[in-house]
Computed example of a mutant assay.
Amino acid sequence: MDDALLTLLRSVDTPTVCNAIEVVEGKRGFNNFTRGTMQISDPNGVLIGYARTAKIAAIDPPTEAPDVIKKRRMAYYEQMATGPRPALAVVEDLDGNDAIGAFWGEINTTVHKGFGLCGALTNGVMRDLGDLPNGFPVIAGQIGPSHGFVHVKEIGTPVRIFGLEIADGDLVHADRHGALVIGKEHIEGLAVAIKKLLDTESIVLDAARRADFDFESFADAWSRFEAERT
């Protein structure tokens, strides 16, 4: 992923990327994205980067020895502080729909931002919404007040976030609509596909925004749109 593509991906929303991947593939049916509605700390936030994955839990206290838990927590932070950039934290809460432990609050988000990550994606809980650092969006499953007994269970293993399987190192695009994984096979043609998609959509949008827009002009625009789109 070169700098030009990175800049482009930061400028568009996740639905645009989802549609553009279908343009690259030349067919409908791309489905490597999250399901369901997620919460986001910054409605305008866009995450694009390589996943640094982990799993946590918080409902029950850890059963392992405290020194084991501490060592794994520090190994987690080392995982997040290293690796290819741009990167984002992708953390699965094993408590699932019952999650109560807000791993993502003011301290943890500030630490991760300091490591150079662009944000966090989780099915778990976030809090401290008024105190999260600027420029570090968190996309989460829930908002809640407590950290519970939150502790790290796994580092660098594949995770599942709202139905989406994400491996460590996968290229992820996410915003308030959800997240998707951009496959290596999509990279080469993605910039051209995004431009084609935006140009195609403008056929209808430009027509609909004109003062003289009516059914006849819509039918003409839609016919041209249908001929161009995937």
Rank of each mutant, 00 (worst) to 15 (best):
M1C: 01
A4Q: 09
L6Y: 04
L6G: 03
L8G: 06
R10V: 01
S11L: 05
V12W: 03
T14M: 12
P15K: 05
V17I: 12
V17G: 01
E22F: 00
V24R: 02
V24T: 02
E25L: 12
E25S: 05
K27I: 02
R28L: 05
F33H: 01
R35L: 12
G36L: 06
G36V: 07
M38W: 01
I40A: 06
I40P: 02
S41V: 07
D42V: 05
N44D: 12
N44K: 11
I48S: 00
G49S: 05
A51Y: 02
T53M: 07
K55H: 08
A57S: 15
A58K: 07
A58E: 03
I59D: 04
P62M: 07
T63K: 15
A65S: 13
A65G: 10
A65W: 08
A65F: 10
V68T: 14
I69Q: 08
K71V: 10
R72G: 06
R72I: 07
R72Q: 13
R73C: 09
Y76C: 14
M80E: 04
T82W: 04
R85K: 15
R85T: 09
V90K: 04
V91H: 03
D93L: 11
G96R: 10
N97L: 11
N97K: 13
A99M: 10
G101L: 08
G105L: 05
G105Y: 06
E106W: 06
N108P: 11
T110A: 15
H112N: 15
K113L: 09
G114W: 08
G114A: 06
G116C: 11
N123T: 03
G124W: 06
M126I: 12
R127M: 12
D128G: 07
L129G: 07
L129V: 12
L132G: 02
P133N: 09
N134I: 07
N134L: 10
G135S: 09
V138A: 08
I139Y: 02
G141F: 01
G144E: 08
G144A: 12
G144V: 06
P145N: 13
P145T: 12
S146C: 08
H147L: 11
G148S: 11
F149H: 15
K153D: 10
K153E: 13
I155P: 13
I155R: 12
G156H: 07
V159K: 06
R160W: 05
F162K: 15
E165Q: 04
E165K: 00
D168V: 01
D168Y: 00
G169F: 03
L171M: 00
H173F: 00
R176P: 02
R176W: 03
H177Q: 08
H177P: 02
G178L: 03
L180R: 00
I182R: 03
K184H: 02
H186M: 03
E188I: 03
E188Q: 06
G189K: 00
I194V: 13
I194W: 02
K196Y: 04
K196P: 01
D199R: 00
S202L: 11
V204A: 04
L205R: 14
A208L: 13
R209F: 12
R209N: 12
R210T: 14
D214N: 15
F215G: 15
F218E: 05
A219S: 14
D220K: 15
D220C: 10
D220I: 11
A221L: 04
A221E: 09
R224T: 08
F225H: 10
E226T: 14
A227L: 11
A227S: 15
E228D: 13
R229V: 10
R229H: 13
R229K: 15
